[in-house]
């Protein structure tokens, strides 16, 4: 957590109370001028029926919000985001922590290479990752056509084109791309764990599993919380890989809130409804953040 400094500000800058604001001007212009003004405009537009192009808008009050209640596609999209969040957050944390523990304290040779392999996907563009996996998950792609030739035909499946598996295909892609993030975070957190606790625990006769569960995992609390929080926000934000693999389909089988907002605005020309959906998304993002901050504060007491 941020430590508030109590020391007086340096004398050189003491009489800068007002024109010190000049330093803040560029950042505030960007954040207020684009982000806050944007949110304001989104909120205002959400009360109108508008195609996003014509000069006239029709005021519909809460109409767009009422429409959300009966919008089956929206509820489906939200359910998809929920499933996606639970699966990706849990699996990325589990694999990341497992790898971080394996690669700790010189247990494994070549740890730096393993680390680079896990982290390279994090820096790659989702647009690139999506295209690579579209080939991997396609029966006509390079990998699956070789599998078919070599007697593995039973495993050949159009993962992203089958409505039953499309969402899980995207889950797998996300796990591949983001496990390195959990891994590096856990690695940094593990480096700060007090080894003395383990000695105490093993003297008390705790098994390795008990040590993991009762001693290690609670010590990594900040890392867990951070990963859950960034994972929730990240799931809410996920857009590129969905649009470039399934486009939200087949049908609506892998629609996300982001792809739905995008389609409403750009494909269907329903800017008003798209804005209302954006407001919903903002409310969800803010709620997640507030809950996480509360939890972090609880942990400090």
């Amino acid at each position: 957590m941020t430590v508030e400094t109590v020391a007086p500000r340096p004398r050189s800058v003491r009489n800068l109370r007002l024109h010190g604001l000049l330093y803040l001007l560029p950042a505030l212009l960007l954040v207020l001028g684009i982000v806050y003004a944007g949110i304001g405009y989104t909120g205002w537009t959400s009360f109108y029926q508008w195609d996003g192009l014509s000069p006239t808008k029709k005021f519909v009050g809460w109409g767009n919000y009422q429409r959300m209640l009966d919008d089956k596609v929206l509820w489906r999209a939200l359910r998809h985001v929920g499933i996606f969040a639970v699966l990706t957050i849990f699996l990325q944390m589990a694999i990341g922590l497992g790898m971080a523990m394996l690669l700790r304290r010189g247990l494994v040779a070549g740890a730096a290479v393993y680390k680079a392999i896990m982290f390279i996907p994090v820096v790659m563009a989702p647009a690139v990752v999506a295209t690579v996996f579209r080939d991997i998950m396609n029966p006509d792609g390079w990998m699956q056509s070789r599998m078919a030739e070599n007697g593995l035909g039973a495993l050949v499946h159009p993962w992203l084109a089958d409505p039953k598996t499309a969402l899980y295909g995207i889950v797998a892609i996300n796990i591949w791309q983001w496990t390195g993030f959990s891994f590096v975070l856990y690695q940094a957190a593990l480096a700060q764990v007090d080894e003395g606790l383990f000695e105490a625990a093993s003297i008390d006769g705790a098994s390795a599993l008990q040590q993991l569960w009762y001693v290690l995992l609670p010590q990594l609390r900040t890392a867990h919380l951070t990963l859950i929080m960034t994972g929730c926000i990240g799931s809410l934000k996920t857009f590129d890989i969905v649009l470039l693999t399934t486009g939200g389909g087949p049908g609506r089988a892998s629609e996300f809130l982001t792809t739905y907002i995008y389609k409403q605005a750009v494909v269907q020309f329903r800017a008003g409804y798209s804005a209302a959906l954006s407001v919903l998304m903002l409310v969800v993002a803010v709620t997640i953040t507030v809950i996480q901050m509360r939890l972090a504060r609880l942990g400090e007491d």
């Binding site: 537009t45 804005a275 998304m281 993002a285």
Partner: peptide
Amino acid sequence: PVGNKTLYYMVLAALTLPAISLIVP
């Protein structure tokens, strides 16, 4: 400068904002 605390939290509040929610504006 004056109001720096409030302004700081205003900037931070934008931290988790999904850019796509600004599509309309």
